[in-house]
Design a protein around this nucleic acid. Structure first.
Length: 290
DNA sequence: CGCATTTCCTGGTAGC
DNA sequence: TGCTACCAGGAAATGC
């Protein structure tokens, strides 16, 4: 499931390919017209200025006649894959460019591929109310603490809302909470003050490390070149139920939270009131590997 | 408004 | 083998 590191990996591959290209035509293939594919009929004749990313959204500003017009918004959802070669099945959008063609495959149709007036996200409420970029200067410990204080929702669920910080999904939420020693069910505003900074640092670290590995491939995610991400072998919590915690050996537990599979160490991430402050077992940010 | 629940969608797999 | 039931989850919609 593409999260920020996977989308950033795709962005870095798309930028040199797409920047400066003219869109000749955008066509729906095996897909019904609707809000997920809105506005594509306006794409023809506009030129792609660049490839940006906000959270898990790819944003491609366009220009026509020398002026900024629309913006192509791409969200990979669960199974979205962008490629320069036609996929064997589940092709939803074909983007004909000057000299090449971009294909958007999306098996489960959770993704989006649409045109909006530049910067107009009224039909994309999550993008409209998204928190700061986790690797940017605005994601400070103080800002994060203020956001957490706004909600009584379990901290993991709140992270997934994209409100306190952008781009965190199910995998990296579990990973960051494990690193910081915070139980995923802890109400956001009850995360101990001493753990807010470590959690913010853990979010930044795990995302940065995964970007360096070109993301995590579990099933469908592929880079534009068709490669799989390499971070899967570094996961400490996600998908490791019943396997020993890499810090303390306790079997990783799996439960359901907000309808999502949730993995945590019952010993390093104790639930409930106020354990002592300090690091979970040893070395919160850099647990032993391998 | 906040918060919880449901919906969308299809391939893979467990169980019989 | 073939069938049914269920699971995976990002974001939006819906229900209080």
């Amino acid at each position: 499931m593409p999260e920020l590191p996977e989308v950033e990996t795709v962005r870095r591959e798309l930028e040199p390919w797409l920047a400066g290209r003219e869109i000749l035509r955008a066509s729906l293939v095996d897909a019904e017209p609707g809000p997920k594919y809105a506005g594509l009929e306006r794409a023809a004749g506009q030129r792609i200025v660049g490839v940006r990313r906000r959270g898990k959204f790819l944003l491609l500003p366009l220009e026509a006649g020398g002026e900024r017009r629309d913006e192509l918004v791409i969200h990979l959802g669960m199974t979205g894959v962008v490629s320069a070669e036609p996929p064997p099945a589940h092709l939803r959008v074909r983007l004909d460019l000057d000299g090449s063609t971009l294909y958007f495959r999306d098996t489960r149709r959770f993704g989006r591929f649409l045109l909006v007036p530049a910067g107009d996200y009224r039909d994309l409420p999550t993008l409209n109310r998204m928190g700061p970029e986790p690797l940017g200067d605005e994601f400070t410990p103080d800002a994060f603490a203020r956001e957490l204080a706004r909600s009584a929702t379990p901290v993991k669920t709140y992270l997934l809302s994209q409100r306190p910080v952008a781009g965190v999904g199910n995998i990296y939420a579990d990973e960051a909470l494990w690193r910081a020693g915070v139980h995923p069910r802890t109400p956001a505003r009850e995360v101990p003050a001493a753990r807010v900074g470590p959690l913010r640092d853990a979010i930044r670290a795990v995302l940065a490390e995964s970007i360096a590995a070109m993301g995590t491939t579990l099933a469908d995610y592929r880079t534009v070149g068709g490669e799989q991400g390499g971070f899967g072998e570094h996961l400490d919590a996600y998908g490791r139920e019943e396997q020993p915690c890499r810090r303390c050996g306790t079997p990783i537990a799996k439960t359901t939270l907000g309808g999502r599979g949730t993995h945590y160490c019952p010993r390093c991430q104790p639930e409930g009131p106020a354990r002592e402050t300090g690091s979970p077992r040893r070395g919160a940010q850099s647990p032993a590997r391998g």
